[in-house]
Nucleic acid binder design. Structure first.
Lengths: 228, 228
DNA sequence: GTGCCACCTGTACGGTGTACAATCGTCAAG
DNA sequence: CTTGACGATTGTACACCGTACAGGTGGCAC
């Protein structure tokens, strides 16, 4: 049947950087970042491990690509009728959203310096919003850096946030944690005993992320109010 | 000469969890976390790789130990005459300090849930301070979680913070980054062009961490003021 | 045709974490 | 003293990892 011309190489058997990155992202979403190995990914793509090295110089470079592709999903539209605070909240909220959709790969963004098109555009939009909040370029840079950092780390590493519908096992773990905390000597650890429930409770992810964003935005706003 | 009784086993040839953890931490400080491999660590300790598995069930368990040992270095004393804000700043500042002293191993704390003695005591002190700021146990738990998270991630992953006295190479990279940013189309990326200098500049670590702490504390204080 | 060249395969090397069995040194009980 | 038990360590082996390097292969331009 039809031969693959150079054009339809993208949709059939042949490999492109795009398909590799998409495969890596899918694999990471499905089985975690540690499942993204050159050999495994190659098998998934029906290809030899070394084939990937034609398109990427190293695994690290491939992961850079994955990180960049995540950035591209962020919704950069801003509601011009909203205040800068609301705009910033929307932008960061969108970031949290796409990071949560790829939570395993999220830590990639906190580790590496992405300089893709999408990353540049996101940074541009963010800086613009913050600048309109009354900060200098230098301050805006610092704030943007920390905001980006906060958002990626927010998603990357919460221990209690491991949520599974299968509530059996994990509820057990939580109950054990709670019992442990409650069994601590109250005269030595009054606050831990008192907070045993919230500490051991599985956190509602939505609430967790909302709180994290609130905290960050409160800090930024308070800085905006303080100076000027 | 003298035999090793069970007592002096700690100071001479034999292995203990302590010595292993100390070795791992030293290795991580000296050559980075990726140098901490079972084989390498064993060689460093003058022992066979599998010897470590007598004291730790897995490498992960060993790293848990390293994380716990870092927690133990945090200064938990509180100045009773200070306000809760100042106390919180001091505590978090101390955390940042010890994390910076082990910056390679710092990301361990953001990944895993530590439940060592030291971690419990630190959490207790932190919760106590925050509770005295007028927050409920549940709120205090959320805040403490985020504060801990912020602090560890602050140290863990800043890209620009890679500072070396050998300024040759890195200055080159910075200059290239700066030129790149400045060469962007100003009508498309006005904020990036405008902030080319601060964006490409190597960040002063002290200023960076101070700013991160300020931002976090500002957020917490503003939350404290808002409610009540 | 013939050669080029983008793309992919085959093989190999040194590294990793760790399972499993054998070994050694010390110490309590006979 | 001998004898076991047992805590601590070694030796060997396996499956997996990232990737260097050399060779194939198929479609295109000439």
């Amino acid at each position: 049947m039809a031969r693959n011309s150079r054009q339809d190489a993208t949709n059939k058997g042949t490999l492109t950087p795009r398909t590799v990155i998409e495969g890596a992202l899918a694999l990471s979403d499905a089985e975690g970042l540690q499942a993204v190995t050159i050999r495994r990914l190659a098998r998934e793509l029906g290809v030899t491990p070394m084939a990937l090295y034609w398109h990427f110089g190293s695994k690290d470079e491939l992961l850079d690509g994955v990180a960049a592709s995540i950035f591209e999903e962020v919704d950069l539209s801003v509601d011009a009728s909203a205040s800068w605070r609301e705009q910033l909240r929307a932008l960061l909220g969108s970031m949290v959203g796409v990071l949560r959709a790829h939570s395993s790969a999220a830590i990639l963004l906190s580790t590496r310096t992405v300089s893709s098109e999408g990353s540049l555009r996101a940074t541009e939009v963010m800086l613009d919003i913050i600048r309109r909040g009354g900060f200098s370029p230098t301050e805006a840079t610092q704030i943007a850096r920390h905001a980006l950092h906060t958002v990626t780390n927010l998603v990357g590493g919460e221990p209690g946030v491991v949520v599974r519908e299968e509530s059996g096992k994990l509820t057990d773990a939580r109950q054990r944690a709670r019992r442990f905390l409650e069994s601590l000597p109250p005269e030595r650890y009054p606050r831990l005993v008192e907070a045993a429930a919230p500490l051991s409770e599985g956190v509602d992810p939505d609430a967790y992320f909302a709180f994290g964003l609130d905290l960050l935005l409160a800090g930024i706003e308070s800085m905006a109010a303080r100076q000027r």
